[in-house]
Design a protein around this nucleic acid. Structure first.
Lengths: 348, 348
DNA sequence: TTTATTGGCTTAACCCTTTTAGATTAGGGC
DNA sequence: GCCCTAATCTAAAAGGGTTAAGCCAATAAA
């Protein structure tokens, strides 16, 4: 276990009998020295076991680190379980990897540690999802470094997004064409509550940029355009995108009387929770209940019946965000296409 | 967009009319100044918009950064898709989050960028999976920083692992009790090839510490102990843990004659690929084919028929690795329990 | 031949903190 | 009023690199 203290650029320069600047240039600016010398030096460094400049020192001096951060909405742990986030992160990491950048994942769940100051390290930020009152987000913005937001918009910042309103409207319309008459909505994080509950009249309308609200507005407008009443007692708030929360909300929704004959779910995971609850209650999908999700996660095509959903190009979303961040293409707000995927859960 | 140049400790000290050391101490060593002064200073810093020492400078000076790295086996992108890695990373991130540490994910796919030197930043490393000839791994070791390995062992380093041999032996034994006579094995990454193929005689035995080899040895010994021949032409090498590769290998395995009546898969994902191939070929599971996986990913209990597998406490594995790394409990090699989960894919 | 350019390297200032060793101040005991 | 201790605070030296500016010799232009 060779725990020798690592070589420094200075020491290497001394050993090789050139200036520190020359070693530094050999690593960073090939045009500053002859190719012959450069190659010789790099080979010597390799031989000596010097693998390039210390990142902390370089970062201090240059003001950049080669690290790109993703600021998530929730805890890291959550995002590892969420298939939507997964695909998105996959897209990001592929691009970063190709460009020799490292990925730092920052938890959006605040209130924890009193700032490690880590936000000073990355050269750029991908902000994933609305960040109401997140102090870390505020600090990131103040730094003035490149930022791109995803799945929400902040005036003055570039973004990658989909048209959630439009997509929600379309999938709702599809359901409404199946001659349904009582449509419930299971929304993810509609309000700031930790519990599954129905929303109130006052919480029905909200023009915020949050994904959940854009989708809800799409559903509501589609319902209205098809002459269906929209009442808050058919709209559930699901606080987290987990199977358990979904099942709980679904049980409630399926036990009211008269029972809904269609449920619009804001995520596929919630819809899959509804399937579980329906099975318990012996309700047949799609015969007794039309069901749709949103996002089209891989699992949705595997469950029985296969789930109708809105397919997002999640990986591409990540790729676009990372690519634009690295290219400095940070002016406009990009809208990606989505696709309605009709499967068996919504029609016979 | 307040893009003002960030404040430095020095400037803040000047403004507040104290020395830089005092500001530094206010943030780092509360015992070095009176509580009264400290609170006043911190409040002032907040007011001025100084959110603590620059991390690069601190990191340079202290030689620590508050960042923990996970060195993965493959590309980052891959690990976002893999449910096994997902749960493991979830465990890690929960612990790190609680301890105010940041998580840096390092891609194990080498040959890419010529070292960004990022390995100098983290304070400790979780090495996830065997790292044959990975130059980054070599460099990490040379640094002499805290390291814990997971799913493989390196002499002299602490580890968290399961007994892959034992688990594989047990699940194979379960299958062999179902009166089967021709057992194929679909192994993940048995050899260094990019293509799905059968292994050769010479590749049958290998005492390496790699997960795949430990499992293979378990299968083989179980077969032998049940008086079944072990021939390499019933053992497939699957180069990556993807559905496509699994389906391809499964097709090959199911088309030989006489056809196997049982398949031992080294991962659940591979087993699910076998299910797809079996469906294509109209082979019934478990009637015509007993099938088992390994790891027990969430999907395995959802597919039809539900998949028999070896359940690992993946999240716990991550938690243990992170906890021990942070505690400096880096002496022994820890073995976690596993559990055989028998479902419908392996018995009527 | 003289002057201007260029190529190839070196010098030295600077990046922002932490921390050791030393200086200052306040307060207590005589 | 003086000395000593304890409590605070300060000065200055790392820590490892990057890069603007400068130097020198060799080549090109006049």
């Amino acid at each position: 276990m060779s725990t020798q203290k690592p070589l420094t650029l200075k020491k290497v320069a001394e050993i090789l009998n050139v200036s520190t600047a020359t070693i530094s240039n050999a690593f960073n600016r090939p045009d500053q020295l002859s190719a012959r010398l450069r190659e010789k030096l790099l080979a010597e460094c390799e031989r000596l076991g010097y693998h390039g400049p210390n990142i902390a020192a370089r970062s201090l001096r240059k003001g950049e680190s080669g690290v790109i951060a993703v600021l998530l909405t929730d805890s890291l742990a959550y995002h590892f379980t969420d298939p939507v986030a997964n695909q998105f992160l996959q897209g990001i990491s592929e691009v970063l990897e190709k460009n020799g950048k490292q990925l730092l994942m920052l938890s959006g769940a605040h209130g924890d540690a009193p700032s490690t100051g880590i936000e000073a390290l990355p050269d750029g930020f991908i902000i994933y999802g609305s960040q109401d009152h997140n102090p870390l987000f505020e600090r990131i913005i103040k730094q003035g470094k490149p930022i791109i937001t995803v799945d929400f918009d902040v005036p003055g910042f570039a973004s990658v997004n989909i048209d959630n309103y439009e997509a929600a409207y379309k999938i709702a319309e599809h359901v409404l064409e199946q001659s349904v008459s009582r449509v419930a909505i299971l929304g993810l994080r509609l309000i700031h509550s930790d519990r599954v509950c129905r929303i109130t009249h006052g919480e029905l309308y909200d023009e915020s940029e949050a994904v959940s609200r854009r989708r809800l507005n799409g559903y509501i407008d589609a319902l209205k355009d098809h002459q269906l009443d929209v009442t808050p007692d058919l709209i559930w708030h699901v606080p987290v995108n987990t199977h358990e929360a979904a099942v709980q909300a679904a049980r409630e929704a399926l036990m009211i009387s008269p029972r809904p004959d269609a449920i619009l779910c804001m995520t596929d995971k919630i819809a899959i929770g509804v399937m579980a609850a329906a099975k318990e209650l012996n309700i047949k999908i799609p015969e007794d209940l039309k069901l749709v999700g949103f996002d089209d996660i891989p699992e949705s095509s595997l469950v029985t019946p296969a789930l109708t959903s809105v397919h997002q190009h999640l990986k591409q979303k990540g790729e676009r965000a990372a690519t634009r961040l690295l290219n400095g293409a940070l002016t406009d707000k990009e809208i990606l296409d989505v696709k309605l995927v009709i499967r068996n859960s919504s029609c016979l």
